[in-house]
Simulated assay, not measured.
Amino acid sequence: MSSARRFWRLGAPAVSAVVASGGYLLLSPNLASSDRGGGPALDSLKLKIHDPGVSVPSRAAQESALIGSTASNPLDILVVGGGATGCGVALDAVTRGLRVGLVEREDFASGTSSRSTKLIHGGVRYLEKAVFNLDYGQLKLVFHALEERKQVIDNAPHLCHALPCMTPCFDWFEVVYYWAGLKMYDLVAGARLLHLSRYYSTQESVELFPTLAKNGKDRSLRGTVVYYDGQMNDSRLNVALACTAALAGAAVLNHAEVVSFLKDEASGRVIGARVRDNLSGKEFDAYAKVVVNAAGPFCDSVRKMVKDDVQPMICPSSGVHIVLPDYYSPEGMGLIVPKTKDGRVVFMLPWLGRTIAGTTDSNTSITPLPEPHEDEIQFILDAISDYLVVKI
């Protein structure tokens, strides 16, 4: 039996680093990005993180701070959406000394930010495009992804770690192709390299990944090439961002839904939002100089609350992961299916004592609770079954 989850894919945001402290998952003191110097807000946060007597403000305190924003004393920024992007925006802004509020209608990471493939991807796919298309823009994406991956893993070892990923090769051309490509990837990574990639013989590969099939349809395994990517606990990283933003002084409130926007009568400019606390049913106004729309797949819905005739900006696609028993993948080793019938890559990865496999990519309509389609589940099963001795 397998279970499946469907999620919205709108691009993976970069996630800042976190450490555990004082019972909370908090950002490390090394959270300042290269384009942001230190400052009083950042220095204060560093002291709070290492003070066991300091805790994240209560929900009531967070709500009071939002209610306390008025037309004459507005927040600098009000963020709508408590996923990884919204919480990252709030944290970045508050550590720059801005007054920040954030509202999330469900719970933090209740949507896409808790339903990813759990990978901190270093961008190896972009490197292939950069080489064959002579595209420097793709190469810059690789550099950026590698930098983010290394930072997250180094600063959050309790939530992130390096994960070896095995690529099966069924002819000698594939062996040379993947080995050369991943060695180039090692070279590009430089100091951000997690571990060197390497080739394993057929026998070594089966010992490392016991369920890997030596023979498929009219083909025999010639070995595998293993490279390292990052794996993370995506939902806990999201909560870490929210907690740290709150500790730094942001007013962060979950189960708080924007029901309408406040506008300046003279200019028509948005100056805040009417917010409903979905736990108590109470409504209040939160004023801000700037409102950031970080509602993920629901960004267009938020935009239409401001102006009915706006053109849609979001083109959502959905991805499905299936959850399999742990014996389909060994602990600490992932498997990559490099070629599927639609040209995509499918991963099979160990996760919390189970195996997750995915993902698909299909156009879809937006609903609050997306459900997987049987053809999407079957696509993943077909993609991985030829690579396994134990059939699904």
Rank of each mutant, 00 (worst) to 15 (best):
R6T: 12
W8C: 04
R9S: 13
A20G: 05
Y24S: 13
S28M: 12
S33N: 10
S33Y: 15
D35H: 15
S44R: 15
L47E: 11
P52D: 02
S64L: 09
D76C: 13
L78R: 00
G82S: 14
A84H: 12
A84Q: 11
A90T: 07
L91Q: 11
L91H: 12
G101R: 02
E104K: 08
E106W: 10
F108H: 03
A109L: 10
A109P: 04
T112K: 05
I120A: 10
F132T: 08
N133L: 15
Y136R: 11
G137W: 15
K140L: 15
V142R: 05
F143A: 13
F143W: 15
E148S: 12
R149A: 02
I153S: 07
N155M: 08
L159H: 04
L163H: 01
L163Y: 01
P164D: 04
T167F: 02
C169F: 04
W172T: 01
V175Q: 07
V175G: 06
R192Q: 10
Y200D: 01
Q203N: 14
P210L: 13
V225Y: 02
D229G: 01
N238M: 10
V239A: 05
A242M: 09
A256R: 03
E257W: 10
L262F: 09
G268H: 12
G272T: 02
A273H: 06
D277H: 07
G281R: 12
K289M: 05
K289F: 05
V291C: 10
P297Y: 14
D300H: 03
K304C: 10
V306R: 04
D308M: 10
D308N: 12
Q311S: 13
M313E: 11
P316F: 13
S317I: 13
S318D: 14
I322D: 00
V323W: 09
L324K: 03
D326C: 09
S329A: 10
R344Y: 02
L349T: 06
P350I: 02
T355Q: 04
S365C: 12
P368G: 08
E371W: 13
H373S: 08
I377T: 08
F379R: 02
A383V: 01
S385C: 00
Y387E: 00
